[in-house]
Design a protein around this nucleic acid. Structure first.
Length: 121
RNA sequence: AGAGUGGGCUGGGUGGCCGCUGGUGUUAUGCUGUUUGCAGAUUUUAACACUGGAGGAAAGUCCGGGCUCCAAAAAGCAAGAUGCCGGGUAACUCCCGGCGGGGGCAACCCUAGGGACAGUGCCACAGAAAACAGACCGCCGGACUAGUUUAUCUUCCGGUAAGGGUGAAAAGGUGCGGUAAGAGCGCACCGCGUUUUCCGGUAACGGAAACGGCAAGGUAAACCCCGUCUGGAGCAAGACCAAAUAGGGGGACGUUUAGGGCUGCUAUGUCCAGUUCCCGGGUAGGUCGCACGAGGUGCUUGGUAACAAGUACCCAAGAUGAAUGGUCACCACCUGACUAGCAAUAGUCAGGAACAGAACCCGGCUUACAGGCCCGCUCUUUUU
RNA sequence: GCGCCCGUAGCUCAGCUGGAUAGAGCAUUUGGCUACGAACCAAAAGGUCGGACGUUCGAAUCGUUCCGGGCGUA
């Protein structure tokens, strides 16, 4: 039963993404900030919300389009697999730093898991 | 076999699990209407099923067009682009064929290649002289007999451009004749030129003849002249729907104790504030534009070719804080190590696998690229 | 998408338009001055002029193209 529930929560639909410029500003402003060599993480845990939501920013300084897409896919994949551990009102924005462009996907996944550990339950 | 040269194709595959996104269908749900049974739509959200989902350069944004809006009689000016000839195309800084020039033994490659008697500018250093040519050293003749011992040298006048040295470039090259010395001064061959003629070619141009003793440097990727082309902006174009807040226009109320101004005051009237209703513009946001097009593939015909015409079949991504992925296994490829083997090779382990991500669409150009495959041609060597 | 600018010594720049010596300041090194140092004085070294191709007798400069960096605007 528990297994089935976690499997159903591995989806990552449009409602779980932050798509609005206003939402980005709402989170990156007052949100809690944490840093790793590869990423910046802004977190805002509110009171209401149906599911954890993710936004991300990868600027042109990080690399060319292929590199940027790879980083975004890695972040998205990590969030999709670990989403069921987070609070339903959890909202975050991940910003990639220039060093992330030179790192492998496995290194990025390790870096992300360290950043998200304190918010999991 | 080696070296070289031109062109074309490809850009890992199969399967399991978990995902993203477009389309279609079914079910449920939301919305609107409602006679509470249901019905409707340009269909909200989810689940399930089927099905589509990056490139040869999607890149750089260097050109050309379609499309949309704005402007606009045409032409011209300005500015920019372009430049051998002919053809192709919607168009082109593109492509095809040819010509001239340059490089290479050759296959083949490179070539912004109109005009320098329309005008202006520039050409350092060196050198006598660098642009209406000129005369330093020379060569030759003469003069005064000026200096000096004849010779010779110096000085002056004149004729020359053969030789010298400088330079990227200095009034065509070689030979013979000729001359005081020389010189296209004359001749032969080569080169060059021609508003000449003939032949071939649509043309650029090529060939031949005749004539000219030979024309007065280079630079136009210096300004410029001549011919040709170009209206401007771009899908964040543009069309539609449309919150919140602020503001605009119009209508009604504006009264009894209830705001302010106007005629001296009051009443009345009127204007404003205020309240309320309606309207349009418009921001966030959303929908369309937006995937059937100068479309692709095959065949036939015309053409050397680029390409065109005809015909048959096919529909092949559509995201928008931006999808096309992650992971595991196997196979194929490459590299290294180890083991077996004389060797070819086989097995195990580890690693590698390029350049790069659609953003309105199309035609080119340019640049990047691991590896693999195919075809044509040239030269050298060897064998038959 | 459109438009524009800049790459020259370790650093900041000039020279480019209008072609012929690659220069200035700071920094570095050496010498002098000083008891020693700073400052000062003198000298030296340091450059594929972002790369490639072309035009030209000759390219930092002109043309084409690529690379890197930056800015404006809707």
């Amino acid at each position: 039963m528990n297994n089935l529930l976690s499997a159903s929560k591995q989806k990552f639909t449009k409602s779980a993404r932050i798509l609005n410029s206003a939402d980005y500003r709402r989170i990156t402003g007052p949100g809690r900030k944490s840093v790793s060599p590869h990423f910046l993480l802004f977190v805002l845990v509110g009171t209401d919300g149906s599911e954890p939501r993710l936004g991300m920013t990868v600027s042109k300084k990080v690399g060319n389009a292929v590199v940027r897409n790879r980083i975004k896919r890695t972040i998205r994949e990590f969030f999709r697999k670990n989403r069921f551990r987070l609070d339903p009102s959890f909202e975050c924005v991940v910003i990639a730093r220039p060093r992330a462009g030179k790192s492998s996907s496995a290194e990025l996944t390790i870096s992300l898991s360290k950043l998200f550990r304190s918010y999991e339950h």
